[in-house]
Amino acid sequence: MSNGIAIETRGVHRSFSSRKGFLFNEVVATEALRGVDLQVPAGEIFGLLGPNGAGKTTLTKILATLLLPTSGQALVLGHNVATEALALRPKIGLVLGGERGLYNRISARENLRYFADLYGLPLARRTGRIDEVLARVGLSDAADRRVEEFSRGMKQKLHIARGILHEPRVLFLDEPTIGLDPKSARETRKLIRGLVAEGVTIFLTTHYMFEAEELCRQIAVLSKGRIVARDTVAGLRRLVGGDRTMELEAYGFEDAEIGRIKGMPGVSRLVAEEFGPRLRLTLRLRTNELLPDELLRQLPGHPELTIRERRTSLEDIYLDLVEEEAN
């Protein structure tokens, strides 16, 4: 592992087998990861995006030593996740989130104390550190309440508290803001930024594009078990064809009109989608040459035409990449 790289994977494959049928069942193999190569710089937030079933959680669990790769190699902080798991585990944290994964009948504080012991937190610091992380995730007032009384958002916060309890150098966050109200989600993002400022490397999977755009320096898009793109948000914008996006909506366009728009200067990509009776053309624009007035001139037969211009969002990029991979 080279300097400054916290996570590195080389050709990681992972397949699962399941059984189909009852008496004469057959084994069905599913390839969840198909040769994943990644490098995550230390001290950054790295975002992993992908549709459901793309392999995000599988990759996260492999990196967090909870799953072995079928083939390939994964190194975290220089440790091979398959052969040096016990040495690596004190240095990493994992937040899988959700309703499960906590001892519901005991308090949040007792949950943390148990895991503090399993992680070998120095006894002299244990109580102070538990108070510290509870305060950090905003659960101080609920520290001594049973977890079964917690809302989903509070449980999510407790998952995060447990993940950072032992001060890991790399933190894996699998959809950390899912189920949180907007205020709590914002506080969680602030917490994530704070951890990075302290030197923690964050590996984040999320479905919220704005969250990835706001937090991540580098983003990888995983689709059907393969990394289809990896870059900064600006780099991904260039990859999918431009910074500017223009949306044209009308009650249908002629094929010839669509062909004319495609050939206009600066248009790198055109996607047509139906919205009820209207058709929307989404254009990715590589340059600033094409202006709405020019489009209006080119499409004279559409008095109802609406044109909206905006910056290409990460969601646009993501959808372009995933759609391309699907095709």
Partner: peptide
């Protein structure tokens, strides 16, 4: 409870 994963991920 789903606590087997976090327990096994401890060192």
């Amino acid at each position: 409870l789903g606590t087997l994963e976090p327990t096994l991920s401890a060192p």
